[in-house]
Design a protein around this nucleic acid. Sequence first.
DNA 1: CTTATATAGTTAGGTTCCTAATCATTATAT
DNA 2: ATATAATGATTAGGAACCTAACTATATAAG
Lengths: 188, 188
Amino acid sequence: MNNNNKVTNDIGAIPSLVQSKRQIDRYNLDIDAQAILVASRLMAAGAKLGHASEIHFSRFGLSTGRYRLLADLEDNEGEELPSQLAEHLGVTRATVTGLIDILERDGLVSRRSSSDDGRQRSVILTEEGAKKLREMAPEHFARLEAMVGLLNIEERSVFLDLLGRVTQGISALTGELGSKPKENISNE
Amino acid sequence: MNNNNKVTNDIGAIPSLVQSKRQIDRYNLDIDAQAILVASRLMAAGAKLGHASEIHFSRFGLSTGRYRLLADLEDNEGEELPSQLAEHLGVTRATVTGLIDILERDGLVSRRSSSDDGRQRSVILTEEGAKKLREMAPEHFARLEAMVGLLNIEERSVFLDLLGRVTQGISALTGELGSKPKENISNE
DNA sequence: CTTATATAGTTAGGTTCCTAATCATTATAT
DNA sequence: ATATAATGATTAGGAACCTAACTATATAAG
């Protein structure tokens, strides 16, 4: 119904090599145009995937964040502290609070005060929440698998390796100029 | 002061293969765990890159979207219609209106009513906007290049190829179940 | 024991981008 | 010519996630 297949927006914005070259030439920079192209394509892909992911999960009445929270709960015997969830999901505690609010409203999780520590309020996956995950699993995983279906087993391995290294390199955007990409920040 | 190098949040959430396996096993699905891992890692990478990108551009007083708009203007002789910008950037016209509002407030672009068609209002890159791009170019491109610095030339080619195919596959999340990934709508 | 400090969670407010509805102008059909 | 439809841009309101400030509880220091 509302899901008109009018191809919505569909981000026709695929950066090209000539585009990258032109940008670099304009300022006479000593930069590899292909490197810029890789960066641009990855950004475009990330944005597209993020958008597609929201559409995918909205079919089940969830958002990407709320699904990930439920899945993480399921991976931890159905009970976790908000702070643990925040760390696992890589979002702030404030964000987790918001995710829980909606999931609780929808009956998929519940909150319980801890007796050990009065500050803590653990989050529990309800039976309804578990059922939701169970019901969506077949389609969800089938779609994810289909997403990488154009790569064979070996290519997937290569892709994982390369993607891992590029992901490390992302810190070049945020860190000190000229510093090497940092190893994962370890403890603290 | 609070110049804590505590590396903020930093998304410590790197999905592992055992995690993917566990999820699939839980429901006895016939799915390749590595495929799920690739999908999960790409999602994580996309989110991380998006976040890092905002931090990067905020150093220059811009957001990712506003930078892209300026760069696209520069690529088109400094003048474009909002609808063209929306298409090039892969966002809605409503979003473009918002981006222009702020860029105009900051003096980096200006609006001009068209004489041909009274509905159109073209967007123009001001001298100040061009200067902004000129000033940020060296650092911006150096950082992008550094981001993929852990890949050699050949690996970059391979990565582009594989990423391209995965990007095509993203439509598996949004399209009909079981349908083949669509060819890109190639603007020729 | 009382005061200072750290920690868990929440609230308040901001940013980015979205969809849907609206306004103004142009094109089309009677 | 006039009503109807299509189109370009904008406005209004919503969703996701952020930072910073706040509340309540726990721990440490004197």
